[in-house]
Design a protein around this nucleic acid. Structure first.
Length: 492
DNA sequence: TTTTGAGTTGTTCGA
DNA sequence: GTCGAACAACTCAAA
């Protein structure tokens, strides 16, 4: 604590794998003294919450990129395996560091672990400082007048907007100083993140993990696609979504940085969409990300349990074969299957198709939303507990601001509306590639001869639909109606 | 405390 | 093909 020397700082990287606009790194750098950047790969305690293979693939490459970027500035990324509290304490002792800087986490299990880490380190004389690096606003700070957390998006976002825009992102630190002697580090290979994925080519073609990859994608989006965003973001056959989700998931981009890159871009004359234009539509999506984290923080049980308690009694089916057909993209509904196969091959699915596929699982198949959430968690390259939970509970109608129960997507109508030429289906369901556009979204209605000309025999080349949507819809409606009937509705 | 207005993303039916 | 209404009430947030 004396005036003479500043002790060293540990900068603990987790879901913030970047150097720009990185508050912990910035704080450590301001303080002066040597900086030791650390990444800790914890043992898996709960297999169901372990990151999926695709997430691990991304993490491997992102760590590689981060280590490279740090290396260019004379620092080393120290990789360790073990329980973070113990590893960090041991590293602090080994390097003489007396401060730890890191980002706040929001997943309930991690928050609990973080509290212990704080105690553990403070006892060892290490000061811990955390930052809300990966959100626009402190999720604990947004409250209704009554002091409660929000449960409805629109007022939540309105309240956020009063405190936005966020401050400008901080630039890349110019000088960084490391210790004279570096502590030992594991090799990246020793974390064994890679061998667990057997479809790396598809991923490699689709993504460039790391801060630079994220920045290039952000620039490309703003330059080429933002102008189309308001109108065409719902078209899975077109490339006008941002594809920033995995970069945000791993904190390779900060939401502040994304905000400013998008807001800077004034809509060019002429077509500014009726309601405020493309930038606003996109920033609103950042708002949903913000809202998801807000909900996770204030309702930490929601990854497991419906926010609306009556849904605990919902009569979900158990049907492993149907679940499997959905997972593999063999439901016989082309738009659903295309989405599920895109997910498997690239680790990503277009957002509109996520809604269609999710609605199909929950409402057409009456399978529990948690089963869908688990599959997305295992397969999505942008799997994020907050977003995944919000999305699935919204679809199932048991979450915040949830879709009304009678809103059941018709996979044929949705397919025709958002993939009007069938290009998306043709790309991901190649058995239908030679099919005519008029029945590409409902091949079971095609004349036998026409189907065979296109090389398709239902039940052999492509499955029969596993449910009749009309019947399934009625079944879902009555299940929801029974739930309502049994809850209340009693006269007061 | 009570009241009031509003609420991401749909579908179907009938005119 | 297009349009508007019905589908249900309920809960949230603010005045």
């Amino acid at each position: 604590m004396g005036e003479g020397r500043v002790g060293g700082s540990l900068v603990w990287f987790r879901d913030d794998l970047r150097l720009r606009d990185h508050p912990p790194l910035r704080a450590a750098n301001r303080r002066g003294g040597p900086i030791v950047p650390v990444f800790v790969w914890p043992p898996t305690e709960d297999a169901s919450r372990a990151p999926g293979a695709v997430l691990c693939w991304w993490l491997h490459h992102s760590l590689e990129a981060l280590a490279g970027a740090l290396g260019e500035r004379g620092l080393r990324l120290i990789l360790r395996r073990g329980r973070p509290g113990e590893v960090l304490r041991e590293l602090a002792e080994a390097t003489g560091a007396d401060a730890l800087y890191c980002s706040e986490s929001y997943a309930p299990a991690q928050r609990a672990a973080d509290q212990e880490i704080d105690l553990h380190l403070e006892r060892a004389g290490v000061r811990v400082q955390r930052f809300h690096s990966n959100l626009l606003l402190d999720p604990y700070g947004v409250r209704t007048r009554a002091g409660d957390p929000y449960r409805v998006f629109t007022p939540f976002w309105k309240s956020c907007l009063q405190r936005l825009p966020p401050e400008a992102p901080s630039p890349l630190p110019r000088r960084l100083t490391g210790p004279r002697r570096w502590p030992a580090s594991e090799s990246l290979a020793a974390l064994e993140l890679l061998p667990r994925v057997e479809r790396a080519e598809g991923l490699q073609e689709s993504w460039k993990p790391g801060e630079e990859g994220g920045r290039r994608q952000l620039a490309r989006f703003v330059r080429q696609h933002l102008a189309h965003y308001a109108l065409d973001r719902d078209r899975p056959d077109l490339p006008h979504t941002s594809r920033l989700s995995p970069h945000l998931r791993f904190g390779e981009l900060s939401p502040r940085e994304v905000w400013h890159a998008v807001a800077r871009r004034k809509p060019r004359g002429g077509r500014t969409g009726r309601r405020g234009g493309a930038a606003e539509a996109f920033l609103r999506q950042l708002g949903w990300r913000e809202f998801a984290h807000h909900l996770l923080v204030h309702f930490p049980h929601t990854p497991e349990v419906p926010l609306r308690p009556e849904f605990a009694r919902f009569p979900w089916r158990t049907a492993p074969a149907d679940l499997r057909a959905w997972q593999r993209g063999c439901t016989g509904f082309p738009i659903v299957d295309a989405g599920m196969r895109q997910l498997w091959h690239t680790g990503w699915m277009h957002n509109r198709v996520r809604m269609i596929a999710a609605s199909f699982l929950v409402k057409d198949l009456l399978l529990p939303w948690k089963a869908g959430a688990d599959w997305f968690w295992e397969t999505l390259v942008d799997a994020d507990l907050a977003n995944n939970t919000l999305g699935w509970q919204w679809t199932a109608g048991c979450g915040a601001d949830a879709a009304p129960f009678f809103r059941i997507f018709n996979p044929v109508t949705q397919g025709r509306r958002y993939d009007p030429d069938g290009d998306y289906v043709r790309r991901w369901v190649p058995e239908l590639a030679r099919g005519a556009t008029e029945w590409i979204h409902h091949p079971w209605d095609a004349p036998r001869g026409r189907l065979e000309q296109a090389g398709v025999r239902l039940g052999r080349d492509y499955p029969h639909p596993i449910v009749d949507h009309g019947i399934a819809r009625e079944r879902a409606l009555s299940a929801f109606a029974r739930l309502r009937g049994s809850t209340g509705n009693r006269p007061r």
